[in-house]
């Protein structure tokens, strides 16, 4: 039986990695992956609590998050592909056209 603390620690580590990746990497694709990492870290925390409390509710939330992430990936990747086709770059620093 893995202790709750270990699971939460892993979740936190994954989440921080996701945050760092999102902030530091300039490639939109990598940033996108970092977001996924954060989502999954959150999912892991949910499931850890689900097991600890023997409750189904967090699992439902996790299912929702996965469905959402799938939808998000579909849309997000489509946008990234479209941007790349048009601009020839996926560097976030070059994509500032919506600034006032």
């Amino acid at each position: 039986m893995i202790a709750l603390q270990s699971l939460l620690t892993l979740s936190a580590v994954l989440f921080v990695i996701g945050v760092c990746g999102f902030i530091t990497r300039r490639n939109v694709l990598i940033m996108f992956m970092s977001v996924e990492l954060m989502l999954n870290a959150a999912n892991l925390a949910m499931l850890a609590f689900a097991r600890h409390n023997a409750s189904m509710d967090p699992q439902v939330v996790a299912m929702f998050v996965m469905a959402l992430a799938a939808a998000e990936v579909a849309v997000g990747l489509a946008i990234i592909v479209a941007v790349f086709r048009r601009r020839g770059t996926v560097n976030i620093d070059d994509l500032r056209n919506l600034k006032w």
Partner: peptide, 11 residues
């Protein structure tokens, strides 16, 4: 504050 750098917003 609104400099167009998405990552700055994220920070």
């Amino acid at each position: 504050l609104q400099n167009g750098y998405a990552q700055a917003y994220a920070v």
